[in-house]
Design a protein around this nucleic acid. Structure first.
Lengths: 146, 146
DNA sequence: AGTGAAATTGAAAATCACATTCAATTTCAA
DNA sequence: TTGAAATTGAATGTGATTTTCAATTTCACT
């Protein structure tokens, strides 16, 4: 299946860090990968429970942190106070629909460059950033117009 | 004193909304204005307690919400999960020092314009945004280099 | 295969920041 | 002065996450 690379990557991380390979970790990674981006621990928990009814919420929680450390997932904190996880890939920022919750990724070299220039003016060393545009997606704008 | 305008502005808002003018509200606004930007409810509470030892945390909390509604303060949620309040003024974004907590405001018409162009490409209607650069300020970079 | 030290699990309890409840108090228009 | 309505603040609730800890599992080494 298409999860081989990630499962192997997890195993490698676990070995390198003297951590143990468990059914739970494997199942949680699988559930996370099967979902499409920006999922919450809660959602992963329900999904993983279908096949593994006795995996606890705490374990999902801890495992998602682990996957982040292992470089397989990234934590995102959008407005609303719930942590979401996305599959780790190139840097990007987000458009977040306040009505339907849809999350669109975007990337803009121009903005990236400009923000570094701004930081330079303050002799500020940027380590990371977040840039989120909140509003209404196309579909919601249409529905609201009705 | 220099708070006259804001105090009057608060009074006006209270009248217009059939709310009452209380010592607590006045004191909390005063404490907020005396502080320099990006303060937490917790901090406002300690400050206001100096002269008004029996004002409760809940009241500070509620009053800060009120000041936001009245257009005198703005709520900000930086990484770390604590709400901070700043004196309401023109739109701007932030540089946040992860070491000393210093917060620098910046504004960039170019970025504002570019992000609207990006949103347009997705037919996304932007209602608000957040753009925060996290890293180390000049002073901290120097100290870290020692 | 068996052993045991170390890691992991999961239920429950703790934490953290914020929000709500409610009885007592205060405000202010009449 | 009065009393209806708003406000206060202590205590309690909430929601998301985090920690605790006893029981279980993993895995390097017999």
């Amino acid at each position: 299946m298409s999860q081989e690379v990630e499962q192997r990557s997890l195993s490698q991380y676990l070995e390198e860090h003297n951590l143990k390979h468990t059914k739970q970790r494997e199942a949680i990674l699988a559930a996370f990968l099967e979902a499409t981006g920006h999922i919450t621990s809660e959602e992963i928990h329900s999904r993983v429970r279908v096949d593994h009814p006795n995996i606890g919420y705490t374990t999902v929680y801890r495992t998602m942190k682990l996957l982040c450390d292992a470089g397989l997932a990234t934590e995102r904190h959008f407005d609303g106070g719930v942590t979401r996880y996305e599959i780790e890939h190139e840097h990007h920022d987000h458009l977040v629909c306040l009505r339907c919750g849809k999350i669109i990724e975007f990337e803009c070299a121009m903005i990236e460059k400009t923000q570094l220039e701004i930081a330079d003016r303050y002799r500020f060393r940027v380590l990371r950033h977040r840039h989120e545009l909140y509003g209404h997606c196309d579909a919601c704008v249409r529905e609201l117009a009705e």
